[in-house]
Amino acid sequence: MIDVVVDIILLTFLATTSIAIMRMTNLFAIVMLFGIFSLLSAGLFVVMDAPDVAFTEAAVGAGISTVLMLATLALVKRPKEPYYDEAPRAHRAWLPLIVVTITGSALVYGTWDIPNFGSPDAPSQTHVARFYLENSMPDTGVPNTVTAVLASYRGFDTLGEVTVIFTAAVAVLLLIGGKRPKPALRSKDEEAQDEA
């Protein structure tokens, strides 16, 4: 009962936050609201009994991406003060609205066939889940089934994913990280040419 009440209130907050994000022009405030949005959705995941997803949402959504967006804001800043304010959009974009409406109604139509939340007849409960639930402990000795699947059954897959993420992080650090390059030292010849 209380879960439903908390769900409804959190969803109301989510909707309010997203509408506010769309209406605002202050980019810094939008990044702050993204943090609130992420915290709200992570709380929603906890209420819906998915602590693993909530864990990822909190780490990536509220932590890393807030810092990354703020860093981007600092890198692309304009000389005008305050640098994080964007001029409001003058025209109204009708085509994106139509596309979003059609896609949204198609998705809502798709949810009609989805089994109820936590239903035992759901395909996700009857397909391979039973095998992992019964065999992951004797096979791998890992108490958490999700961890057993990710780190043992799909160990090489996870290794590949981690390699991709590591490569991307190194590339980003090489491109934007560290100190700005110093202006190139001019040779004596160039200075002589300038004076001439």
């Binding site: 990044v31 702050m32 915290l39 780490a59 932590g63 807030t66 600092a74 560290g178």
Partner: peptide
Amino acid sequence: DIALVYALINFIGVVAALKLVEQGNFHASD
């Protein structure tokens, strides 16, 4: 445990935001 992780992450995010507001960037200037 998740609540504890949230407390840590929230701290990092707020410190990053405050650092950006104070300095205007994240890197030490030459």
